[in-house]
Nucleic acid binder design. Structure first.
Lengths: 334, 334
DNA sequence: CCCTTTAAGTTAAGCGCTTTACTAATAGGT
DNA sequence: ACCTATTAGTAAAGCGCTTAACTTAAAGGG
């Protein structure tokens, strides 16, 4: 059978309370006793049962991370950076991919609640905030990452998506582009990016194209979606000279479509992406893209949730990071 | 306070045992009582505490997944496919990235043992099997995926790496290449692939190049590693006409180096990769690569570990899947 | 009509810890 | 020598559940 605290106590000739205290460095314990207990633990190869200890009110040292899709490089890189910080702080991460499906969001949240995770990091769509509000009402720490909910009081590490879109557009405008398309999903962050994008155009007295629209279908692969959207542009009356894609995967799909149509990126059409995942450097041409500080976000969001655990936060915190334009080879003056 | 089984019992006017039995569909319970209990749970918004239930000997419904690096597309895609199957079976996955560091492997395993995960899925290096044997000795279910340990009795869903290397080499040989380099990490799977690779060459009476070696440094990015290795070949006496890279990331690094040297893939040098991750279709040229059946592996490994939970396995099972050559545009006859 | 079954629950112990309140023993002060 | 502090440790309750053993009441059998 598994060795328990009782076995250790017996071996060391002390009470279980003393063993517990030694483990948790609490209470008053003599040097000799401490040593005896440690030896006993060593000898028996004792591993404390965290379930039992969590049952008495201590943390489970586990955090739920809910994201749309682990196979998407942006999220796997974000998850990795969160995991790294979590590891430093002795937490584990349980990762759940929702595919933007509310049903999965709900099921995962409920499952993780039953497992008494210490808190949630949400990076999923969650267009519907009901679930999130429920968590908050139950005093379960929640932090949002890579997504913001203005007008809603919640802890978040967000990216200034509006600014990102604005900058992307500006870059293109400075290169002299006037006929610019966009490719975006119908999710909050993308809508914000496009808002910034359009505002930038208008500041330059350019009316956004009329055929612009958001991609509704969230079940297809993003590369495919980008591909299809680009084809629409290629078949339109006036082919744009530049396209702003709201993430790198969409951008890549677009590049493929353009190449297949016998055109060249950036000579015929410039592309700017968003995220700056590792694949941005891998495609040909290397993608000019808005860089999200993924490492930084992972770290900040972990530190934020930890500070909530510690009760160091009385009011909500909203950390907004600013994306950066990374110029590579997919854009060019017109 | 959190609502417990006692609250439900009181509300429904039954004993906690009855509530427990209703939840677990055990014992004999009248239709009316069952309904009353359900209503009470509904009304109070009851969520069973899995910690408590696990403490009594039931499963935690949580599985530890240990991989080298979540940011590597092969592993994030594998993790995703495992997660999907796990979700169907109502399990959660806690993911740990080890970077091939034994220290992290050990720390993660120990942490997860304390959390009493139901079992481990290992996809990490684990050159040192000590830890794994310990787990097995303690009767904790362990399954290996994407890695095999011949001469060691363990449950595994493996890829026939030898065959993969053999096929990759054969493809190149059939295209007429004679001077072929390879790029590989010093990990078991890669060594096997190279063994197959070399055997294929020898069957064609071609002696492998003398400057072939494995990459030792596991801390740099794989793309970078592939890049460096390729440069070595480019600067060698006889530049190879083809290179076999043991994973897609290495292949991509090699392609970049070749392009930067002003040469063309596949005209000057053919490249074949390994894994067939989603990025293989994204690079330019699209990568010819050995395809690992990632979806299949994820599913098989989950089903395998579940069958172990159920005690359906008396002896160990080793499922070996065979990789497939996917021809794209990065190889060409010499 | 009495005894055995069967159905429908209940009681209470136990899972492995944490923690509060308590005890015992020694040291310190005068 | 007597009382108070202080130190080192213990006993026992409780966390929220499962489950084996038991109870009670109604039904069935002869």
């Amino acid at each position: 059978m598994k060795v328990t605290i009782y076995d250790v106590a017996k071996e060391a000739n002390v009470s279980i309370a003393t063993v517990s205290n030694v483990i948790n460095k609490k209470g008053r314990i003599g040097e000799k006793t401490r040593k005896r207990v440690h030896e006993a633990m060593e000898k028996l190869n004792y591993e404390p049962n965290m379930l039992a200890s969590a049952l008495t009110g201590k943390q489970t040292k586990t955090i739920g991370l809910i994201i749309p899709d682990l196979a998407n490089p942006f999220f796997s890189e974000l998850a990795r950076s969160i995991e790294d910080r979590a590891h430093e702080l002795s937490y584990n991460i349980v990762i759940c991919s929702t595919d933007y499906q509310e049903e999965k969001e709900n099921k995962y949240i409920s499952l993780l609640k039953q497992k008494r995770v210490d808190g949630f990091i949400l990076a999923s769509g969650f267009e519907n905030l009901e679930r999130v509000q429920e968590l908050m009402k139950e005093d379960i720490p929640v932090v949002i990452v890579a997504r913001d909910y203005p007008n809603f009081s919640i802890n978040a590490v967000a990216l200034d998506d509006y600014m990102g879109g604005y900058q992307a557009a500006n870059h293109l405008l400075q290169l002299g582009h006037k006929n610019i398309g966009f490719i975006a999903l119908d999710v909050y962050s993308n809508r914000e990016r496009i808002r910034g994008f359009k505002d930038a155009l208008r500041e330059h007295h350019i009316e956004p194209r009329k055929d612009l629209h958001f991609i509704e279908d969230k079940k297809q692969s993003l590369v495919k979606a980008g591909n299809i959207s680009a084809i629409e542009y290629l078949e339109s009356e006036e082919i744009p000279t530049a396209v702003f894609a709201c993430n790198d995967l969409l951008a890549i799909g677009a590049i493929q479509a353009i190449k297949e149509a016998g055109l060249n990126v950036p000579d015929d059409i410039s592309i700017v992406g968003f995220d700056n995942t590792s694949i941005a450097t891998i495609v040909d041409p290397p993608l000019t893209t808005m860089s999200q500080p993924i490492q930084r976000m992972g770290r900040e969001v972990m530190d934020l949730i930890i500070s909530i655990f510690k009760g160091e936060r009385d009011d909500e915190v909203r950390i907004t990071l600013v994306p950066d334009l990374v110029k590579r080879k997919s854009t060019k003056e017109v």
